[in-house]
Each structure stands twice: as C-alpha cells, then as structure tokens.
Simulated assay, not measured.
Amino acid sequence: MLVALTVATAVAALLLAAWCGWAAWRDQPTKDWHFIGMGVVALLATVQLVVGVVQLARGEKPEQGTVIYVAYLLGAFACVPAAGFMSLAERTRWGSLTVAAGGFVLAVLQVRLYDIWGA
C-alpha cells in the first residue's frame, strides 16, 4: 500500500468535506466547483483502487485479510460518487452536507485501509 497515496486521498477528502460543509453552513447547494473537487477526490480513490488491486495481484497480502481489504477499497471508491449523486437529487444545503459527510467517511476509510494493510 502506498502510504503517500492514502494520506493524499484522506487529506483531499477532508478538504472536500470542509469545503462542502462551509457551503452547507452558508445555506448553498453543491455547485459545479464542488463537483470538480469531487472528481479530483474520486480520481485519487480510483488510483488507490488500481494500486491496491495491482499489489494484490503481485502477491502482497494485507495483514487483516484480502476480502476485507478489497471491500474497503470498493467502499472508498464508491463513497464520494455516491454522495455526489445524492447531492444532485437534493439541491439544497443538505446536498452539500451529504457531500461533506461523504468526504469525512472517505477519510475514515483511508485510516481503516491503512490499518488493514498493516503498514
């Protein structure tokens, strides 16, 4: 597992959560700029998914099990896009709050992935 990628993804997710949380506090829905930020965070999660699968294919094994590691990788991959789609359905401040929660959840998943890998 690439620790730098995990840290970068977690920091980007927390920045997205703070940005969308600020928008929710100001009573604003998600805007185009928020979706660009979600795209950047989702790209980092996609790179992490690919790197994780490649490491598993090379024979490296996480300490706490491959199945749970892949499950967390897939959850991290889907977290922000799912929140983004939900925010499209709710075009109020609650949509921004949903993305903020999704970013926070992704950051927590990064910590858990780090623990599962045993780095």
Rank of each mutant, 00 (worst) to 15 (best):
V111N: 08
L56C: 11
T9S: 12
L74I: 14
L113M: 09
T98D: 04
G84F: 00
R26S: 15
G65P: 05
R26E: 11
R26K: 15
M86S: 10
F85G: 13
G95I: 10
G59R: 11
W33Y: 12
P62C: 10
Q48M: 14
A17F: 02
G21M: 10
A24I: 00
A78T: 07
Q55V: 06
L44G: 07
A83F: 06
V7Y: 13
W19H: 09
A8G: 05
L74W: 07
V7N: 14
M86C: 04
G84E: 00
L16E: 02
G84T: 06
R93F: 08
P81D: 06
V53F: 12
R93H: 12
A89V: 15
Y114D: 11
V99P: 00
G84M: 05
W117Y: 12
C20G: 09
G52K: 14
L97I: 14
L106M: 07
T46L: 15
G75I: 01
L49H: 02
V47C: 08
L14F: 04
E60N: 15
I36Q: 12
P81C: 06
Q110F: 03
D115A: 07
L5Y: 02
I36Y: 07
L97V: 06
A18E: 11
L56F: 03
V11P: 01
V80Q: 00
L56T: 12
R26C: 15
A83R: 01
V40Q: 03
R58E: 13
A107K: 02
V108E: 04
S96W: 00
Q110N: 13
Q64M: 12
E90D: 15
V50E: 11
W94T: 14
I36G: 01
F77T: 01
G75H: 09
T9A: 13
G75P: 03
E63F: 01
R91W: 09
I68N: 05
A18R: 06
L2C: 08
L43R: 09
V51K: 10
F104A: 06
W19F: 13
T66L: 09
F77I: 00
L88W: 01
G84S: 07
R93T: 11
E90Y: 06
G59S: 10
G59F: 08
G52H: 05
V67M: 08
V67G: 08
P29R: 12
Q55F: 11
